[in-house]
C-alpha cells in the first residue's frame, strides 16, 4: 500500500501538511543513508525522548484532524466521552430510580419521558454511554493487541509454524461471532461485563490478524525489509521496528474497527436479553422497550434515542478511521494542501 517513494523525505509533494508518522523523524537523524529509501526506518518507536514522541503524536492527530470527516468523528466521539465522564452531573436523576410515573411522554421534568418501569429515559441514555465506551475501549484495545502480535509474526515468519497459526486463526475466524457469543452467554447466565468483553475479544481478534497478515506479507518482499534482513537484524526487530511503523494507520484503523464491532456486539447481546441486565446500557434499554411493547404504545423515543446513540458512536469511530487511513497513506489523505 505505502510505496517507499511515497513516504521517503525526498519525494514528499505535500511537505507542509504533516507527513505524520514516518518522514519527520527520518529527515534529520538518519545516520546511515540507506541505499533504497526506507520508510519507517527511524520512527516514533526509535525516539527515546518523550517530548519528541509527543510531537510526533501531535502531528498524527493534526493529520487526522485535517480530514473533515475525521474531524466530525472526533467531535462526536469527544461529546460521548464527556457525557460518560460527567454522567453523574449531567443526568437529572439516578438511572435506576423507578419512582416516577410509568410510560410518561416527554415533559419538562422528563425530557424523553419515562420507561415502562418508571425510570427517567434521559438519565439512562446518559449513563448508557459509559458501558458502550468502556466495552469499546477495553475489548477493542485487547483484540487489537492480539491481532498485531499474531498478524505480523504470521505474515513475516515462514515455515511449519505458519501452518499452525494459520490453522488457529482460521479456527477463530470460522467460529461465527454472534452465534458463538450468544451460545457462551447462554451457558454463562449473568456473567456480567467482563464476560461480554472476553467473548468479544475471543471472537474479534482473528479478522484484524488476517488483514494485518496480508499487509505484512506484501511489505515483506519490499526492498527495505530485504535490506534489513541482509544486515542481520533479528526477526522480532524487523517485524516490530521495520514493518510495524508502516502499518500504523492499519493498526489504528483495526482498533477503531474492533472497538466499533465491540460496541455493536454488546448492544446486540443486551438487546437479546443476554447481557448484564442489571446495568443500564443502550442495548438493554431497547430490550426493555421492546418487552414493554413501546412500538405499540407509541413510545418510539424509547427505541429511537438509545439506538441513535449507538449509531452515532459507531459512525464517529468509522469517520475517525477516514482520517487514520491518511496517516501513513497520503493517497487517502484529503485536503492535503496541493
Amino acid at each position: 500500500m505505502t510505496r517507499p517513494s511515497e513516504n521517503s523525505p525526498g519525494a514528499a509533494p505535500d511537505t507542509g501538511t504533516a507527513l505524520a508518522t514516518t518522514s519527520p523523524a527520518a529527515t534529520p537523524s538518519t545516520t546511515t543513508p540507506p541505499a533504497p529509501p526506507a520508510p519507517g526506518r527511524r520512527t516514533w518507536l526509535d525516539t527515546t525522548a518523550p517530548g519528541r514522541a509527543l510531537q510526533v503524536l501531535g502531528r498524527a492527530v493534526a493529520t487526522v484532524w485535517s480530514n473533515p470527516k475525521a474531524r466530525a468523528g472526533l467531535v462526536i466521539l469527544g461529546v460521548f466521552v464527556l457525557m460518560a465522564l460527567l454522567a453523574p452531573w449531567l443526568a437529572p436523576y439516578d438511572p435506576h430510580d423507578d419512582s416516577f410515573g410509568r410510560n410518561e411522554p416527554g415533559s419538562a421534568a422528563h425530557w424523553l419521558g419515562t420507561t415502562g418501569n418508571g425510570e427517567d429515559v434521559l438519565s439512562q441514555v446518559i449513563y448508557g454511554s459509559r458501558i458502550s465506551l468502556l466495552v469499546g475501549l477495553v475489548a477493542g484495545g485487547l483484540s487489537t493487541v492480539v491481532a498485531v502480535v499474531i498478524g505480523l509474526s504470521w505474515g513475516y515468519l515462514r515455515g511449519w509454524g505458519n501452518d499452525v497459526v494459520n490453522f488457529l486463526v482460521n479456527l477463530f475466524l470460522v467460529m461465527p461471532g454472534l452465534p458463538l457469543m450468544i451460545i457462551i452467554a447462554a451457558y454463562l447466565q449473568n456473567g456480567g461485563l467482563p464476560m461480554i468483553i472476553l467473548v468479544v475479544v475471543i471472537t474479534g481478534w482473528a479478522w484484524g490478524a488476517r488483514v494485518l497478515r496480508s499487509q505484512t506479507q506484501s511489505l515483506r518482499s519490499r526492498d527495505f525489509v530485504t535490506a534489513a534482513m541482509f544486515s542481520g537484524e533479528s526477526a522480532p526487530r524487523i517485524i516490530f521496528r521495520e514493518i510495524l511503523p508502516n502499518m500504523t494507520s492499519m493498526i489504528a484503523g483495526s482498533f477503531f474497527g474492533a472497538a466499533t464491532a465491540a460496541i455493536l456486539s454488546e448492544s446486540g447481546l443486551s438487546f437479546l436479553g443476554l447481557g448484564d441486565m442489571a446495568t443500564v446500557s443502550w442495548g438493554s434499554m431497547i430490550f426493555w422497550a421492546q418487552n414493554s411493547m413501546a412500538i405499540l404504545t407509541g413510545q418510539w423515543v424509547l427505541l429511537f434515542a438509545p439506538g441513535l446513540c449507538i449509531a452515532l458512536l459507531a459512525t464517529a469511530m468509522t469517520l475517525v478511521n477516514f482520517g487514520v487511513d491518511g496517516l501513513s497513506n497520503p493517497r487517502l489523505r484529503e485536503g492535503s494542501g496541493r
Binding site: 431497547i286 427505541l303 449507538i310
Partner: peptide
C-alpha cells in the same frame, strides 16, 4: 453511517 447502525435498530 448506515453500516454503523446496529442491525436490530434499523430493523426496529
Amino acid at each position: 453511517f448506515l453500516s454503523a447502525f446496529p442491525y436490530f435498530w434499523t430493523a426496529l
